[in-house]
Design a protein around this nucleic acid. Structure first.
Length: 409
RNA sequence: GGGGAGGUUCCCGAGCGGUCAAAGGGAACAGACUGUAAAUCUGUCGCCGAAGGCUUCGGAGGUUCGAAUCCUCCCCUCCCCA
């Protein structure tokens, strides 16, 4: 169990720590740590992988980890790092979402051995009595201090309402409650949570005279400045129904050169020696590193067999045409009669999801970015007929990288 | 509660009675170049379409031959004062 701290540090997980030497010493023995997650959706996306991987490391090093879903706080909305009031979510939705999140966490954490737990802060937040809460918790908070906090300062310019202003108290109270219930002495989170986490550690000190620490992760952006886990098409979800393993794999293999080393360290469990070797590859060779990154990251989330399937599909599609295990490419079903009648290419692309509108599909094809079975289309209104079907399916390609298989049924 | 400034297409931001589907920038998409990377260059970037049509400028009404642009009411945001 020794050395998680160094592992986390070396792999790039550490942005700020409340007290480095204390935390390091604390982690020599088994501790209980927690990270809060927002149940505003029933799936995580790649942007949440840093905290998830951090928990995975902690558990692997013999610590107890708590994944806390903010069933209570999600009803408030955390203002940190946001410029606008967040959408409030209903209770029912939150509870259902929490279930989905737990299933995904189970790919990274082992919930069976009594060293990983999922708890919901709704359990203690919802029954709270306002008056008591103000007396017991509220009195420990200085408004002056809160206003000075980085997380609120930004919002002070655009406006912050009272409900959000309370978020810090609730999250601090979470930490206190977890300290009491589970002996939790380390809270981790994204760097935007720094203020909230410290507030919790502070509260524990004041109320329980206990010692609790804080550790934050860097907020990642890609080398081009994009948010981690976002693509033009939206978030990269961990849920295979929202982002297929193939697309997930593609997200990683498309990583910017400059991100490869960081990503290998953060999102795979490969030994750091290997990570460093891969990251030092230059030029075209770096593609090998990206392939490993994509494979390993996909394995973590979707398991080995899906990861290998995704790699095969990806290799086949990008190494020229030819035999592809087409089943791993996103597939859309379409009525066979439409092919028998003949379908205009632009309609086909739009309906297959490769373009949002028919107009966009027209443009795509007109600009030379539309392919059917590897043949570049000349005109957007070209008619595609059943004669083009191969084994009852068509392989469509939009631009260089987007594929879709259309199956006639 | 009083006073002021605003809400424009994904974002920022011009427009302030016709020439506006709406400048400019960013993002995004396609092509060329490449290594499924970046950078660069070119093109595209409301919806349907062959022409042409249709729906947009916070919401609802109104004035006008004609409104994103003028008027009325409403909603929302920010600032100053209470």
């Amino acid at each position: 169990m020794s050395g998680v701290y160094d592992v986390l540090k070396e792999r790039g997980f550490v942005e700020q720590v409340s007290d480095e030497s204390k935390v390091r010493a604390m982690l020599e023995k088994s501790v209980t740590c927690y990270i809060g997650f927002d149940p505003t959706s029933d799936s995580f996306h790649a942007g949440s992988l840093v905290p998830i991987m951090a928990l995975a490391h902690m558990q692997r090093h013999g610590h107890r980890v708590l994944a806390v879903v903010g069933g209570g706080t999600a009803m408030i909305g955390d203002p940190s790092g946001k410029t606008e009031l967040r959408q409030l979510v209903s209770k029912e939705e939150i509870d259902a979402n929490a279930e989905g999140l737990k299933r995904q966490l189970a790919h990274f954490l082992d919930f069976s051995g009594g060293t990983a737990f999922m708890v919901n802060n709704a359990d203690w937040l919802r029954p709270l009595n306002y008056i008591e809460f103000l007396r017991d918790v509220g009195r420990h908070f200085s408004v002056n201090k809160m206003l000075a906090a980085e997380s609120y300062r930004m919002r002070l310019e655009t406006g912050l309402n009272f409900i959000e202003f309370n978020y810090m108290l609730l999250q601090a109270y979470d930490y206190l409650e977890l300290y009491r219930r589970h002996g939790c002495t380390l809270q981790m989170g994204g760097n935007d949570q720094w203020g909230n986490i410290l507030a919790g550690a502070d509260l524990i000190r004041r109320v329980e005279h206990g010692e609790a620490e804080a550790l934050t992760f860097p907020l990642l952006t890609t080398a081009t400045g994009a948010k981690m886990g976002k693509t033009e098409k939206g978030a990269v979800w961990l849920d295979p129904k929202r982002t297929s393993p193939y697309e997930y794999y593609q997200y990683w293999i498309n990583a910017d050169d400059r991100d490869v080393g960081r990503f290998l360290a953060l999102f795979t469990l490969l030994p750091m020696d290997e990570v460093r070797r891969l990251a030092s590859l230059a030029g075209e060779e770096l593609r090998e590193a990206k392939e490993i990154l994509a494979l390993e990251a996909t394995k973590m989330n979707h398991g080995e067999s899906e990861a290998f399937k995704a790699r095969e599909a990806s290799r086949a599609l990008f190494s020229g045409e030819g035999g592809v295990d087409e089943s791993s490419v996103p597939t859309v079903e379409m009525d066979r009669r439409r092919f028998e009648e003949g379908i205009p290419a632009f309609a086909l692309f739009a309906d297959a999801g490769l373009a949002k509108t028919r107009g966009e599909a027209r443009r795509l094809i007109a600009q030379g970015g539309g392919y059917v079975n590897g043949r570049r289309l000349e005109a957007a209104d070209e008619t595609i007929t059943a004669g083009e079907l191969r084994d009852g399916a068509l392989m469509l390609r939009a631009g260089k990288k987007k594929y879709a298989r259309v199956k006639a049924s």
